[in-house]
Amino acid sequence: MKIDFKVNGRDYSLEVREDMRLLDFLREELKLTGTKEGCGEGECGACTVIIDGKAVNSCLVLVPEIDGREVITVEGLERDGRLHPLQESFIEKGAVQCGFCTPGMLMSAKALLDGNADPSDEEIMEAIEGNLCRCTGYYKIVQAIRDAAGKLRNGKA
């Protein structure tokens, strides 16, 4: 079937398989391999992308569901070769170790900050509750998101 959609600001009009997951479509058809597959069943959040402003698990979305909608993946964060403040803060605060959960963490954090410029630590923790990290722990990740929120508020983006 043919669907029209937008990914990272670019318009697409493509024939897609009705039963293909968005995660596989992004990685295999659009070659956007920043989005990771962890558990494949909506538990770990490694595959988190933003659809129409909402953080979702792309392993639980079928491609036809994005018809007429806008998707943002981790590749859509940087602008003209410059990292997004969230990406900068994750590096600066040491919020990355193996890095496998990082794309999903970043997308959940972006969805949060897009709707809440000054989140509390509790709101940050709720936003990343569906993103599992097995090596960094969450303290530095929460710190990084708080730091990025400050940068965005102060117009350092």
Binding site: T48, N57, E126, E129
Partner: peptide, 12 residues
């Protein structure tokens, strides 16, 4: 309902 799945799941 904050106890239903994760934020991502609840968004879907």
């Amino acid at each position: 309902f904050s106890l239903v799945g994760s934020w991502q799941i609840r968004n879907m």
